[in-house]
Design a protein around this nucleic acid. Structure first.
Lengths: 204, 204
DNA sequence: AGATAATCTTGTCACTGGAAAGATAGGAGT
DNA sequence: ACTCCTATCTTTCCAGTGACAAGATTATCT
């Protein structure tokens, strides 16, 4: 039939493994992830990934890097070229939306010890993603000063609501987890933006 | 000599295992944790923990529950009976201080898939800890309304700064991680408190 | 004292990640 | 065309893991 002849050389095993790993980690969770199962699904021997990624940390780091790339794209899509406070509000929504849509990968990216955050690809992709946030804060404040402080504040609040909704105590119990969570996040995000905009005035 | 005769029955293996597990998870990280190594250090057979905790998730859930108890105590100690905005500021400092002092356990408690957050002990201890935060926000606002909204906002910001400093991109690179991080957190915490206090006025 | 239940040990299982050594293929240079 | 060299992938092996089952030991209750 249409059975592939299964050539010895896969052709693009690096990419294929990264994709399968992403799927697998979503299914099984971070701890449940298995290199052998991953290789199995990609149709290669269990030691094949080692040549491309070194070890399981290397593979999951690649998954993390791709996650950051998707996060960047998501935030850009949400921002859609806007400026000012609206830009920040949209970027924040993009951040939370990504987290809610891909919770396992999100936690993997930022808070898992199975990823090497010193990994160059990971770091570059992470910097790019956070660059979007920096740019949005900057656009919202348009040079009003206190940049580092206000950036930390904004980032912390956005990241915090994402983490609490995705994987923490604020997680809605019911069925449509994502819907309820987004709704909860909305108010908090608006409040964060407001707080960022008034940063200078109400504190010396 | 003073060699213990190593009785068949340990006496308080539940507690001993929980302690050893806490230490071990600190040393090896969440993923590196091993039930067998834990049993080894406690001086019992590798299957002994199963009887008390079921499986490794049960054991780590106990570690998590104890973490919440320590978090509660830490926050109470920081608050020291104060009221109003100061209470919230101190509680927030306690939260961040705990996270920075015990980062692995902190991440385990809130964002690990090796813990069963439905576990009764875990849930009760978690509720107690978050009760401290609720009480502090309530004291700071003294019945100014919008309680759920403002609570989510405060919690998200506090949790966010803790996570980013402990295990994320804001983590200071240098040696005295904790010192630098606390300093960074201070400004953010003050800002959070301020924002909580002005919640009603500057938004309809 | 004797029965019953709780606690702990020994032994086994399938599974995991990593290392080593061999098989296969592609490419460069002659 | 032919050989060498290297990258890719497979097979084989090893120590380690969590869970389970069955047996040994001790505490508790009547």
């Amino acid at each position: 039939m249409t059975e592939a002849p299964k050539p010895y050389h896969h052709g693009d095993l690096f990419d294929a493994l990264a994709r399968v790993a992403e799927e697998l980690v979503r299914e099984t969770g971070i701890h449940g992830f298995s290199l052998r199962e991953c290789a199995r699904r990609a149709g290669v021997a269990h030691s094949a990934p080692a040549h491309h990624f070194g070890d399981v940390t290397g593979l999951l780091s690649e998954v993390s890097a791709r996650g950051f790339e998707r996060l960047t794209a998501r935030m850009q899509a949400h921002r859609a070229g806007t400026e000012g406070p609206e830009a920040l509000e949209r970027i924040a929504r993009g951040y939370v939306d990504f987290a809610l849509g891909d919770p396992v990968v999100f936690v993997l990216m930022l808070h898992s010890d199975r990823v090497d955050r010193g990994n160059p690809r990971c770091q570059r992709a992470g910097d790019a993603a956070f660059g979007e946030l920096v740019a949005a804060v900057s656009s919202a404040r348009s040079g009003a000063g206190r940049d580092n402080e206000v950036l930390r504040f904004a980032w912390a609040a956005i990241h915090g609501i994402a983490m609490l909704l995705v994987d923490g105590p604020l997680m809605p119990a019911g069925g449509n987890r994502r819907g309820g969570a987004i709704e909860l996040a909305e108010g908090t995000i608006r409040r964060i933006v407001h707080s960022v905009m008034t940063y200078t005035e109400d504190r010396g």
